[in-house]
């Protein structure tokens, strides 16, 4: 039974069963959103139940397929609602957050990985500890600083700065772990060839760290694209809402526009999900490189 080539493999069929079941659980809520979005209605029921429903009626009500397929929810959410403007705000905020955040994180992480200087330990620890700062503690001071002192209320710049900095600690830790794995000999060779520190950083280290930089970018983008508490606190004007703040309005409080919400949710999710899936191979290597120290 046990052979040298390692064929004591588990039969694949039960494994497939487990995976199919898990996948169904993982995908069902997503299909549900699509169903609601395509139904053209605002109700959150997939099918209307008769007063005395049979088991089949109930089964129909959980199968994620709408009775009639229409794109009306999508078209009205984009045209009737100020949703397009909110998407644009979110896009600007998230893209600039990514650029600023990645730049700041890369430079800092490089210094932490390559140089030994007083304050290095304290700096890294303070970044780590800052991950434990409760958001509720920061919200009121942030509001005061952004809106009252810097006069950046209802402005995208304020949000970009806040998101870029809040993403820094995680990104720095991850990048630093990756930079540590890049052999120092490469840089030493470059120094002998007369390269300056900035050439080494831009031309040698950064290209080698592409996977980690990609994860950093993804993380910064998701921070900017998904955050909604700070945005809801700082953005007063309706035209300046980001998509998450706007989406919440469809199903928050007294409004129950599940159709608009579902259509909006799909539109909002597509960029992040696509980016995420595209970059996921980097994600695995980036995350493990960051945590397993070389």
């Amino acid at each position: 039974m046990r052979s040298r080539a390692g064929e004591d493999e588990f039969p694949h069929l039960p494994l497939h069963l487990v995976l199919v079941l898990a996948t169904l659980v993982a995908v069902y809520p997503v299909l549900w959103v699509f169903t609601i979005a395509l139904s053209g209605q605002q109700s959150l029921a997939i099918a209307d139940l008769p007063s005395d429903p049979t088991v089949w009626d109930r089964l129909r009500a959980i199968v994620p397929w709408p009775k009639t397929v229409t794109l009306s929810n999508f078209t009205s959410v984009v045209t009737d609602q100020p949703f397009a403007q909110w998407m644009l705000n979110s896009a600007i905020v998230a893209i600039l957050t990514t650029i600023v955040g990645v730049f700041l994180a890369c430079t800092a992480a490089y210094a932490f990985a390559r140089f030994r200087f007083p304050g290095r330990q304290a700096g890294m620890m303070s970044f780590l500890v800052s991950q434990m700062f409760p958001g509720t503690l920061m919200l009121i001071p942030l509001y005061i600083i952004l809106v009252k002192w810097l006069n950046l209320g209802s402005s995208r710049i304020g949000l970009i700065l806040v998101y870029a900095t809040t993403a820094i600690p995680f990104c720095v830790w991850m990048l630093k772990g990756y930079f540590d794995t890049i052999p120092k000999e490469l840089e030493e060779a470059a120094v002998i060839d007369g390269a300056t520190p900035s050439t080494i950083f831009w031309r040698i280290v950064l290209p080698l760290a592409k996977p980690a930089v990609a994860v950093t970018a993804l993380f910064s983008f998701m921070t900017g694209w998904n955050e909604f508490i700070i945005a809801a606190t700082v953005m007063d004007k309706e035209t300046m809402y980001t998509a998450p703040v706007g989406l919440r309005f469809f199903v928050g409080g007294f409004s129950q526009q599940w159709g608009y919400f579902a259509a909006g949710a799909i539109i909002v999710s597509i960029p992040v999900v696509a980016l995420f899936l595209f970059l996921q191979k980097y994600l695995v290597s980036g995350l493990t490189a960051g945590s397993v120290k070389g």
Binding site: S126, M138, P141, T165, I168
Partner: peptide, 10 residues
């Protein structure tokens, strides 16, 4: 950035 928008608010 961290000092102005993270540590100081904290």
């Amino acid at each position: 950035g961290m000092v102005v928008l993270v540590f100081f608010p904290f």
